[in-house]
Computed example of a mutant assay.
Amino acid sequence: MQTHLYLVRHAHSDYTPDEKSRPLSPKGAKDARKVAVVLSKEGVDRVISSPYKRAIQTVEGISREINPEINQWEGFRERLLSTGPVADFQAAVAKVWEEEHFAFEGGESNQQARARGVKEIKKVLQQYAGERIAIGTHGNILALILSHFDSCYGIEFWRQLEMPDIYCLSFDGLELKNVRRIPLGAKAI
């Protein structure tokens, strides 16, 4: 019996310094409707999300369709790069990917963020074995989780992720058997 986890990178949001309550942009809201349609066709059983508003909003359409409750799991939040602003975001992300144990002041290293994300994945697999679960999350933590299972998922993978993006991870117990990207199609519903 396989468990299928649909890691959903949130749709586009307009930048604000308030990470937790940053909402989707109008484009992001339109794209979130595509996510609901696609996940509906996948037969998703339940929805979990990062507690960040943009991640919740990206998966709330499928949640309303199957079960209005979205379980918020703190471990699926985006990796904290630093407690303060960084001068060059792309360079800062490159630095933490180059040095596995390096963290900016108050931030998480790749090792720390990956361990947090993988711990949550294992909890989901144990609690909801045999189900299809949509998980609203973020680009960096999604790439870090995947990199735990296969080193081909690194910074270049992260750079090519779209907003939104969906990757289905199929597990047999705790063993990852397959990863496939779920295309969203061209038209919003």
Rank of each mutant, 00 (worst) to 15 (best):
T83H: 15
E60R: 06
S25G: 13
C168A: 15
N67S: 08
H148L: 09
I182V: 11
E156V: 09
L80G: 15
I166K: 10
L39P: 15
G130T: 07
Y153T: 04
A115Y: 04
I155Y: 15
E108A: 01
K95N: 04
I66G: 00
A103N: 10
A94T: 01
C152R: 15
A103I: 09
D31T: 09
K53H: 03
F171S: 11
L7Y: 04
G173H: 08
L7M: 07
E120V: 07
S21P: 07
S151D: 14
L142M: 12
Y6G: 05
K122C: 05
D18Q: 12
G84F: 13
G28Y: 08
E105S: 07
A91I: 00
L169E: 14
V118A: 03
K119M: 03
R33P: 00
H101K: 15
A188V: 15
K123Y: 07
F104M: 06
S147M: 06
G139S: 10
E74W: 09
Q112D: 11
E105T: 10
S147Q: 12
T3K: 06
Q111S: 11
H101T: 14
G84Q: 15
Y128Q: 12
I121N: 03
I182F: 05
Q112F: 08
Q90L: 01
Q90D: 01
H12K: 13
C168M: 15
P26D: 09
A134V: 10
G84M: 13
L144P: 08
A113P: 06
Q126G: 09
A94E: 05
L39Q: 09
S151I: 12
Q90T: 01
K187M: 06
L169S: 15
V93Y: 04
S170V: 07
V124I: 14
V37F: 11
L7G: 03
K122W: 03
I135A: 07
P164E: 10
N110L: 14
E74Q: 12
I48K: 03
Y6I: 03
V118Y: 04
Q126L: 09
H148P: 07
K123E: 11
Q57D: 11
H148M: 09
F104T: 02
F89Q: 04
N178Y: 00
I121S: 07
E42I: 12
A113E: 11
T3E: 07
K27A: 11
R64W: 08
K122Y: 05
V35N: 08
E74H: 08
Y6A: 03
V93I: 02
S40C: 09
S170H: 13
G117R: 00
D172E: 12
A91Q: 00
K20R: 13
G139M: 06
R22P: 15
Y52I: 03
E60L: 01
L81D: 00
T137F: 04
K122S: 07
R114D: 00
V124Y: 06
I133K: 05
V118P: 04
L39M: 11
F102L: 08
H10V: 00
A129P: 04
S63K: 00
A188H: 12
G61E: 02
A92P: 00
S170W: 14
R114F: 02
V35A: 08
A186I: 14
D88A: 04
A92T: 00
K119I: 01
A143G: 05
V96S: 14
